[in-house]
Design a protein around this nucleic acid. Sequence first.
DNA 1: ATTAGCACTCGGACCCCACGAGTGCCAGAT
DNA 2: ATCTGGCACTCGTGGGGTCCGAGTGCTAAT
Lengths: 338, 338
Amino acid sequence: MSEDRRRAVLRAIVEGYVATSEPVGSKALADASALGVSSATIRNDMAVLEEEGLIAQPHTSAGRIPTDAGYRSFVDNLAATALQDPHKRAITTFLSDAVDLNDVVERSVRLLSQLTRQVAVVQYPSLRESAVRRVELVRIGADRALVVVVSADARVEQSTVALGDAVGDEEFERVARDLNEASVGRTPAALLASLSDWAARPGQVAWAAPVAEAVVAAARGGTVERVVFAGAANLARAGADFESDAIGSVLDALEEQVVLLRLLHEMAGEGQDVAVRIGAETRTDALARTSVIAAGYGPGGDAVSLLGTLGPTRMDYPGTMAAVRAVARYLSRVVENE
Amino acid sequence: MSEDRRRAVLRAIVEGYVATSEPVGSKALADASALGVSSATIRNDMAVLEEEGLIAQPHTSAGRIPTDAGYRSFVDNLAATALQDPHKRAITTFLSDAVDLNDVVERSVRLLSQLTRQVAVVQYPSLRESAVRRVELVRIGADRALVVVVSADARVEQSTVALGDAVGDEEFERVARDLNEASVGRTPAALLASLSDWAARPGQVAWAAPVAEAVVAAARGGTVERVVFAGAANLARAGADFESDAIGSVLDALEEQVVLLRLLHEMAGEGQDVAVRIGAETRTDALARTSVIAAGYGPGGDAVSLLGTLGPTRMDYPGTMAAVRAVARYLSRVVENE
DNA sequence: ATTAGCACTCGGACCCCACGAGTGCCAGAT
DNA sequence: ATCTGGCACTCGTGGGGTCCGAGTGCTAAT
């Protein structure tokens, strides 16, 4: 069946191009790979693949390179690759002596960028599903207070809130104790109900409402969904895959965060274990020449938070996917135990 | 006095090169600038400047470009430039509606990178000088606790600590209350003394010592001195000033943080209002082609924390210095009022 | 269905040369 | 003592032309 061989040719082209970053020609393929057919046959297959839009030639007298669709097909027909052993060991040794959640995230993102030699992104584990362990109200001025929410998974979220008017010390202390009682042990969803009740109690102080709001917001995961990066330098090293102002656009998009977060969320909704967006599939101009590989992680395997990598479309998909998958699994375990 | 004119020539060379990124020749200088002398005279001056090591030619038949020493001389002979008016307004409007310290820092770093079109760095205001407002001890497991320190300037620092052994609930609560009392209102310096006393009290629980340590560390500014970046893309856009793997090294150095922090601290010690390190003066290989401009900021003008920018040596020094100075002043004011 | 052979294409490397910006220096002017 | 005009020289850049070879598509033979 020649269909099979054509897939094999595509695979060989992708692998060759990824390895050398040069277009691969029919002769080179016939010599190097174990396809066992002549270059002429490969040329015919290539013609078909080009017809199907999976490969293209940069110019008439050059070899072929995969198109976005070609990478897509390659990725879809991929048997899950196991992570290399040394990498496996790296994950455990590197992450096992992390001391707190910050540290875990920090180490993870660095590790992931080193394993994949690409830009790595890790979103902080979301509080969404974890109960509130404690709420602290600390005054930082006559009419302002700091709300600190500590969650069961040892995260701390803070925000400041205006009380609207000067508030006496005893009153402040009393309400703070009260608030804590009304909040502890509840998930964000339950909080919403219980705190709006609390703020509406007869005799409740006027500034209870904004405070309650701030607590709920903080419990939901803070005002911002934080993400952390590492390995931006790998972009610059990607060499000929970008001209330098394209690197600039990508770095801008990374700093934006919001674009990337939206993308990651979309990808998480797709339900696979590891999601891949290739080139234009990112639906983002600045990322048109990059691919994003993402996976969710969270306690019990619920994909409540996200991590992933970003790099030029010409990347080692199997290896990167394996690394992302492995780090996501490991992080899930860690978050569970914390 | 020809010495004066020579300075003017150097200044014109620096300004011309910064503006065009091309070596400037004697004829262009004679035509464009208001020096009022012929190109031959300028050539003579150039010869002297080259002798002094302030300028160089990339190749025999090209104009001159400033050396690191040339930039240094230029900067040292600089009258302080006022910030452009639109920029001034940008600072106030952009920063005035920040809601909390995080937000202030976040906005500042972005603003600074936009004003200067370079990479901006802002170190989080250090707790060093501000008293502790509250210490919370929250258990997050049978034998682990989370230490949260809230400072008078509304910062929250956290770290986890191992208790060494399972601890009963009442005991835990009692010690937590105790700890809070022993800490509140003290500066980190005073804390060190008072908490080691506290931990050494007769009858004190065994796990008091590690907890006390964690509190002191957190009060000192957390386990890490955090810095935050913006504008990495500006590096990539700097065009011909870097080849792309040099960008990579710089990005690496930025992620390292520790290198940059050391450098900033050194610079802060120099006592000027705005400190400048040019090229090799950074004493850091990765930054050999970049300059760093830094200023301290803090309540009451005490330079307890740092901010600055980093960019190619070929940069607009007066403008960048003005922007750094202005943002540092503004931040000082904000921190003071918080 | 595969292969060998062949004519054809075309980008990249190489060479060569002319151009011109820029220099250093010297002799004369101020 | 300082500046200027002039001049010969350097050398990097850019344009134009040529050649080479990798790679292709097609066709005829297996």
